[in-house]
C-alpha cells in the first residue's frame, strides 16, 4: 500500500517536472530572442544615454557622473541642430497617421464592405503597393517628383506656369511630398478594418435598417462604434509606425529641406556621421521610446473620450 503510494506521488512529481521542462524548453528560444534583440538593447540604450561614448572611446562608454548625468540630453535639446526639427516632423507624421491615414483607410474599408460590382477587384489591386518595399516606393516617388521627367511638376505647371523646381528641395513642400509618398498606401490597415466590418452581425444591420439607418448613417452610428477596438489598435500602429519613418527620408531627401526624422538622426549620430556619437544617439533613442509610449497613451485617451460621447447618445450601446 505504502509503496504504491510513494510510487504514485513519484510518478506525479516526475510528471510535473516533465511538464515544467517542456514549458521551459518551448519558451526558451523566444525568450532568448527577446532578450538578445529587445531587452539587452533597451537596457544598453537607456544606460549609455548617460555616458560619454563616441568615436574617441568606441569600446568603453564612460558614465558622465551624477552631476553631469544629463549632459547628453542637454546637448540634444539645446545644441544639436536637427533634434527639434526631427521631433516636430516625426510627431506630425504620427498625428497624420491617426487623423489622415486611419480615416482614409476606414473610408476605403467601408467602401470595400459594400456588395457592389467591382469592389473585389479594386480591393485586390489596392493591396499591391503594400506588397512592395517602402524602399522601392521611396525610389518610385523620387522619380515621380523629378523635375526632369516626373509627373508631379507637369501637374503643378497647370496651376503655376514655368515651375521648374524640385519640390523635394523646397522647404515646406518637401515635407508634404515625403508624406504623400507613403501615407495613402493603407492596404493592409484597410484589410484589417474590413475584416472587422464584415464581422458586424447581419441582424444588427437589419435592426439599424428598420430604425432608418442605412448606408453612411449606419456606418457612422452602428458600424464604427462596433469596430472601435480595432480602430484604436490600427491607430496606435499607424501613429507609432509613422513616428519611426526612415526609408522615405533616406530615399527622397536625406534630411534636406527640413525633413529630418527621429530615426534618421539616430542613425546619423550612431553610424553615418564621421564623428559617431553613440551615447547621444542612444539619448535620442530614449526620447523615441518615451515618445512612443506617450503616443500610445494619447491615442487610447482619444478613443475613450470620443467613443464615450457617442456611447452616451444611446448608440452602439455595447460593453
Amino acid at each position: 500500500m505504502k509503496t504504491t503510494n510513494t510510487a504514485d506521488t513519484g510518478a506525479k512529481g516526475r510528471q510535473a517536472w516533465r511538464r515544467r521542462g517542456f514549458i521551459f524548453a518551448f519558451l526558451a528560444p523566444t525568450v532568448i530572442a527577446f532578450t538578445v534583440f529587445y531587452l539587452y538593447p533597451i537596457i544598453t540604450v537607456v544606460l549609455t544615454s548617460f555616458c560619454k561614448w563616441d568615436y574617441t572611446n568606441i569600446t568603453s562608454p564612460e558614465f558622465l557622473g551624477f552631476k553631469d548625468m544629463f549632459n547628453n540630453y542637454k546637448y540634444i535639446f539645446s545644441t544639436y541642430p536637427y533634434f527639434w526639427e526631427a521631433l516636430r516632423n516625426s510627431s506630425l507624421w504620427a498625428f497624420l497617421g491617426v487623423f489622415l491615414q486611419i480615416p482614409v483607410a476606414t473610408l476605403i474599408a467601408l467602401a470595400f464592405s459594400r456588395k457592389m460590382r467591382g469592389v473585389k477587384l479594386v480591393r485586390n489591386i489596392y493591396i499591391i503597393p503594400n506588397m512592395i518595399s517602402s524602399a522601392a516606393m521611396g525610389m518610385i516617388f523620387l522619380q515621380l517628383y523629378s523635375p526632369l521627367y516626373g509627373i508631379v511638376n507637369p501637374i503643378i505647371q497647370v496651376f503655376e506656369e514655368g515651375f521648374t523646381e524640385n519640390i523635394l528641395l523646397l522647404k515646406g513642400p518637401a515635407f508634404w511630398a515625403l508624406t504623400g509618398a507613403y501615407i495613402f498606401f493603407t492596404g493592409t490597415t484597410t484589410l484589417l478594418i474590413l475584416g472587422n466590418i464584415m464581422a458586424v452581425p447581419q441582424e444588427v444591420r437589419e435592426a439599424a435598417m428598420l430604425d432608418g439607418a442605412s448606408g453612411l448613417k449606419q456606418d457612422w452610428y452602428i458600424v464604427l462604434p462596433m469596430i472601435k477596438d480595432t480602430l484604436r489598435t490600427v491607430s496606435i500602429l499607424a501613429a507609432t509606425g509613422s513616428f519611426l519613418i526612415y526609408n522615405e527620408v533616406y530615399f527622397l531627401t536625406k534630411g534636406a529641406a527640413g525633413t529630418y526624422s527621429i530615426s534618421y538622426i539616430i542613425r546619423e549620430l550612431a553610424i553615418t556621421s564621421p564623428r559617431t556619437q553613440f551615447g547621444r544617439a542612444n539619448t535620442v533613442a530614449v526620447v523615441q521610446i518615451l515618445a512612443g509610449l506617450v503616443i500610445i497613451v494619447l491615442v487610447n485617451l482619444l478613443y475613450s473620450i470620443s467613443f464615450r460621447r457617442k456611447h452616451g447618445s444611446g448608440e452602439g450601446g455595447r460593453k
Binding site: Y38, I42, V45, S263, A270, I271, Q288, I289
Partner: peptide, 16 residues
C-alpha cells in the same frame, strides 16, 4: 515588442 521602436535599438544591435 510591437511597440518597441526598432530604430531606437540601432546602435546596440549594430554593436551586437
Amino acid at each position: 515588442t510591437m511597440f518597441i521602436p526598432a530604430t531606437a535599438l540601432t546602435y546596440p544591435v549594430y554593436n551586437l
